[in-house]
Nucleic acid binder design. Structure first.
Length: 514
RNA sequence: GCGGGAGUAGCUCAGCUGGCUAGAGCAUUAGCCUUCCAAGCUAAGGGUCGCGGGUUCGAAUCCCGUCUCCCGCUCCA
């Protein structure tokens, strides 16, 4: 075990113990790669979302929001390419341990029959010489007709099984045909399993093909199919963008590394529609803006790097990842893609509805090009947690566990602590607590020694503690204790709001982006 | 799917050559003490020792099966 594994392990433990992330369905032994967000986790997550939403939708006048449904018309995924690209029925041979595509095995079988027909034809051609009529022979020879008949039957069965996603029949077909593994020569097959990126479920109570529906594997398509709705209803002019935060689902073959790769996850995506030919300028703009969004949080610039794609997906003409230095190493945190007009064009074809924008400056209509920014919310959560989590050794030899979260994102912003649980200190502290909780998430704590309470707040990343002592009763001043430096300063109670505003309000952070 | 590792309290673990009502530290709760940085005092709560079966007078411990999680490989935006 390397130390990076230990870091991740400690982080997982800490996240569970302090109510950030729990393994899902834990009382039933858990569910692989599925996690629940606890009381502090959900606040941290919500704060990340708020930061993203404000930075994107609120401060960009050319961005608007959308919250489209997780269910979408099945044709959506045909148009996007997801159905065809990730729909392989796979079967394993138990002896050779080799994995095959079931349909390919059957295709190869069909090819063998076809070769047999060819052989018959060749033989006949030799027999009949120049008078040989190939077409006539194919239509009349009993043996050839038998082969052809078998091919038709097999092909029909395979097609039916594939279209109905009937894996049992597909396997039965392989068994019935006596197909053997090219390597081991055995017929010792496993079940046929569908490796599909998308989760299928059924809409309505009547089962059958027509009601098969998918849980969306990305939120982007919701923005594409609503492109014209949004453009018209919000009176948007190109260039403009649609932002969306929401859950997405992918049937990853391996889903691991804590919340880094989950089958159910949340995305923060933005689709920016531009005039064709201008996409690279906007690609650059969003690339710069997105890295700025990350850097002002202060997780450390050395933890980020760009990774430009050399091999591009079918829909893209430029792509880069923002990678983050996770405990497992640098991994993709966010993707910025120039997706061309691939998606809108496909939807126009499949739906038969024009997906075009009339550009008043050019006096012409076109399908816009799209620049996408897509960040994994759970990955961002993990990035924030892992960069913030530290086990400190203090000068006096003691240790403390510190979650140095960016203070705007901290689930609890303030802890209000009476130094002693008597002499009227709790009363004043509660008084302050009740006022501050209107603006910030606060905790009131009067239990245990003051040092212990500070450490408790350090563990959940509370940036500031406000301590009320006897002197506070006389001079109206309180102690503000800083989480990271542990330094203290006295400030008047009436100055608290202004002091806190400068340090905690997101508007101050957003200002750095403009 | 293959290989490796691991399942005992909320967390980290001990116990595992079979044998008292299954433990420790931290955490939690209640109270005490304390005027500013954990490990002060008292008490309490919390565990079907992953699950099932077997061997035995007796199983957390031995045997068999099974499930789950983690890591690597395979696969893969």
């Amino acid at each position: 075990m390397s130390s990076s594994d230990d870091v991740l392990k400690s982080l997982v433990s800490h996240a569970k113990e302090y109510g950030f992330v729990f393994p899902s369905s834990e009382i039933y032994d858990g569910l692989s790669a599925t996690y629940d967000y606890g009381p502090y986790g959900v606040d941290l997550k919500n704060n990340i979302k708020a930061y993203w939403w404000k930075a994107m939708v609120q401060i960009h006048t050319n961005l608007v929001g959308l919250d489209s449904a997780i269910f979408m018309h099945p044709t959506t995924w045909k148009a996007s390419g997801h159905v065809d690209a990730f729909n392989d029925p796979l079967i394993d041979n138990k002896d050779s341990k080799k994995r095959y595509r079931a349909d390919v095995l059957i295709e190869e079988y069909l090819e063998k029959i076809r070769l047999k027909i060819e052989k018959e034809v060749e033989k006949a051609a030799q027999r009949f010489g120049d008078s040989f009529d190939r077409d006539m022979y194919l239509k009349t020879n009993a043996r050839v007709l038998g082969y052809a008949e078998e091919m038709d039957q097999v092909r029909g069965k395979m097609k039916a099984a594939l279209e109905a996603a009937d894996l049992e029949s597909l396997r039965q077909l392989i068994v019935d045909l006596g197909i053997v593994c090219p390597l081991s020569g055995s017929k010792n097959w496993t079940e046929v399993r569908q490796f599909n990126l998308m989760f299928a479920t059924e809409l309505g109570s009547v089962s059958g093909e027509a009601s098969t529906i998918y849980l969306r594997p990305e939120t982007a398509q919701g923005s594409y199919v609503n492109f014209l709705n949004v453009q018209k209803s919000a009176r948007m002019k190109i260039p403009f963008g649609i932002a969306q935060i929401g859950k997405a689902f992918r049937n990853e073959i391996i889903a691991r590394q804590f919340i880094f790769r989950m089958r159910e996850f949340e995305q923060m995506e933005m689709q920016f529609f531009v005039r064709p030919g201008t996409e690279m300028e906007w690609f650059e703009y969003w690339k710069n803006f997105r890295i700025k969004w990350h850097s002002v949080l202060g997780l450390g610039s050395q933890n980020y790097r760009f990774h430009d794609h050399i091999k591009l997906a079918h829909y893209a003409n430029a792509a880069t990842d923002i990678e983050f230095n996770f405990p497992m190493g640098f991994k993709e945190l966010e993707g910025i893609h120039s997706r061309t007009d691939f998606d809108l064009k496909a939807h126009e074809t499949f739906s038969g509805r024009k997906q075009q924008y009339f550009d008043p400056e050019l006096q012409e209509s076109y399908i816009p090009y799209v620049v996408e920014t897509a960040i994994g919310l759970d990955r961002m959560f993990l990035a924030v947690m892992s960069a913030s989590y530290t086990e400190e050794k203090l000068e006096d030899g003691s240790e403390r566990t510190l979650l140095a979260l960016p203070r705007w994102l901290a689930p609890v912003k303030l802890a209000i602590l009476p130094l002693l649980k008597k002499d009227g200190l709790p009363e004043l502290a509660l008084d302050i607590f009740k006022k501050l909780r209107l603006d910030y998430t606060c905790q009131y704590d009067e239990k245990d020694a003051i040092g212990k309470r500070y450490r408790r707040q350090d563990a959940i990343g509370t940036p500031y503690c406000i301590t009320i002592d006897h002197q506070s009763l006389e001079d109206g001043m309180v102690t503000l204790r800083d989480r990271d430096s542990m330094s203290q300063e006295r400030i008047p109670i009436q100055d608290l709001k202004g002091w806190l505003h400068q340090r905690l309000d997101m508007s101050v952070l957003l200002e750095q982006l403009t």
